[in-house]
Amino acid sequence: MRRVDRSQRATISITLNGRQVSAEAEPRMLLSDFLRHSLGATGTHVGCEHGVCGCCTVLIDGAAVRSCLTLAVQAEGKAVTTVESLAGADGRLNALQQAFKNNHALQCGFCTPGILMSFTDFLGRNPTPSEAEIVEVLSGHLCRCTGYAGIVAAVLEVSGSKDNAEKRSV
C-alpha cells in the first residue's frame, strides 16, 4: 500500500461512476468529503459522521461502504459508485428509483441516496429477497420522514417479491 505522510497532500485517483477522476487530499480526508467537496459529487450525503445513519453509503468495487468511515486514500485506484450513476443518461430513473417514486419511499430525500446504494449492492447479490431480508438491510439506515413503510414496499415491488409478500400476508 502506498504510504503518505500526514502533512503531505497527495493526488488520489479513483474511478467514479465509470470515469477516471483525481484530486488532491490530505491523508486524513474522509471519502465522503472527498466525493462531495473535491470531486463535486454532492449526491452522497453526510448525516452523522459516525457510521450509524447510512446516508453516506457508496459502493467501492461493488460493495456498500460508509464513505464517512472511509478515508479518501483507501479508495485510491478503486471503482466508486454513487447515486449519480443510477439514472440513465437521459435522466430516466432505473427500476429501483422508479419503485421508490411509486411507493412514496422518500420525503426530504436526504437519506435516500445511501439507501439506494445499499439496495443496489444487496439486490445485485440477492434479486428476490424476502421482506425480512429487506428489513434487515434497511435497518442499517435511518430515515426520519417516512416511517420506512414506503421503502420496504418499493424494494418489494422492484425485486418482484411483492406478489409473494402479499400472498404470504394473506
Binding site: 447515486v83 443510477l86 428509483q97 421508490f100 412514496h104 441516496p113
Partner: peptide
Amino acid sequence: LRKEDAALLSGRGRY
C-alpha cells in the same frame, strides 16, 4: 406521484 422525486432519487437535490 411527486414531482420532487426524480431529482432527489438521482443525487440532484440542492441542499
